[in-house]
Nucleic acid binder design. Structure first.
Lengths: 80, 80
DNA sequence: TGTTCTATTGCCATATATGATAACTTAATA
DNA sequence: TATTAAGTTATCATATATGGCAATAGAACA
């Protein structure tokens, strides 16, 4: 899939789970030590985040990284 | 866990799966368009790779991203 | 010996993720 | 109206992931 779509899907996963936990972006940013503006960019899918921050976010949300990153699409057998 | 440990575990997962598929680093680098030196650094756990390259590698290995990133450890309840 | 394949390492330049701050919008509420 | 909270966006500086190339080392083999 396109890069931007990948970022958006990951960002949306984070936003959805964060809201399920009743946390604001600022709450989450304080817990995991990521700038709130950066968190906003990540959730908006405007950033190619690193596994380091993916890990920090997953720990702050008390979930596994794979629960955030489980956004692969089915119809990609011939992507490469 | 420590950043370096995270990178190493992810790198090792990639290396293990790559070898299971009978691919050399150069093979994989050609398939997914990642510099072979960068791939070497990633597998060695010396790089905080981005989800974009995580995605490219997973597609080249014909697996899901979560199969690479499934390295969370159990004893981290109180990490944050 | 020489050759080939594989992987690593060093170096440099570039792109960009991130941190940090400020300004702004919107919504909710007193 | 004013105030507060939540989120977005712009800007800038810094750190670093990546691309690219060259050199090196080790293993396997002729």
């Amino acid at each position: 899939m396109e890069d931007e779509r990948l970022y958006s899907m990951v960002g949306t996963r984070i936003k959805t789970i964060r809201e399920q936990k009743g946390l604001s972006q600022q709450d989450l940013s304080l817990i995991c030590n990521i700038e709130k503006t950066n968190l906003s960019r990540i959730e908006a899918g405007r950033t190619n985040l690193t596994i380091k921050n993916l890990y920090k976010i997953s720990k702050a949300l008390k979930i596994r990284m794979k629960e955030i990153i489980d956004v692969d699409e089915e119809d990609e057998k011939d992507f490469y």
